[in-house]
Amino acid sequence: MSYDRYVAICQPLHYGTLLGSRACVHMAAAAWGSGFLTALLHTANTFSLPVCQGNVLDQFFCEIPQILKLSCSHSYLREVGLLVVSVCLSFGCLVFIVVSYVQIFRAVLRIPSEQGRHKAFSTCLPHLAVVSLFLSTAVFAHLKPPSISSPYLDLVVTVLYSVLPPAVNPLIYSMRNKELKDAIRRLISWTFSKKVSKVPLD
Rank of each mutant, 00 (worst) to 15 (best):
L128G: 09
S136W: 12
R5G: 08
H118C: 11
L171S: 09
L180I: 00
H118Y: 05
A39I: 01
Q11N: 09
A167D: 04
F61L: 06
P12D: 00
S73V: 04
M1K: 14
G54S: 06
C62M: 10
M175F: 07
D154V: 01
T137A: 04
V80N: 10
G54M: 08
A141L: 09
Y173F: 06
L89K: 10
A30M: 05
V139A: 10
G54I: 03
M27R: 15
T43Y: 06
P65T: 06
L187I: 00
P112I: 00
V25C: 11
V99H: 10
V196P: 02
P126I: 00
S174P: 05
I188K: 15
L125D: 01
K69P: 03
V84G: 01
K194W: 02
S2H: 13
A30R: 12
P165L: 00
F105S: 08
E179F: 07
L109M: 13
A29L: 06
L201V: 02
V108I: 11
H142V: 03
S132W: 12
V157L: 06
A31C: 03
N169V: 03
M1E: 07
A23R: 11
T43V: 04
R106Q: 12
L19I: 01
H142T: 08
F60T: 00
P50E: 01
Y101S: 07
K181Y: 02
C72P: 06
A120F: 02
K194E: 03
N177F: 03
S136C: 08
R186F: 10
F134H: 09
L155V: 00
R5D: 12
R117W: 06
A107H: 10
A167I: 00
V99T: 10
L143R: 07
Y101T: 04
L83V: 13
Q11H: 11
Q11I: 01
I64Y: 05
V196H: 09
S2I: 01
Y3I: 00
V196L: 10
S21Y: 12
T123G: 15
S75R: 08
R186D: 09
W32I: 00
R78H: 12
V131P: 02
T17R: 14
C24G: 07
G92A: 15
L40C: 11
C124I: 02
E63T: 14
P165I: 03
E63L: 04
L155W: 15
T38K: 08
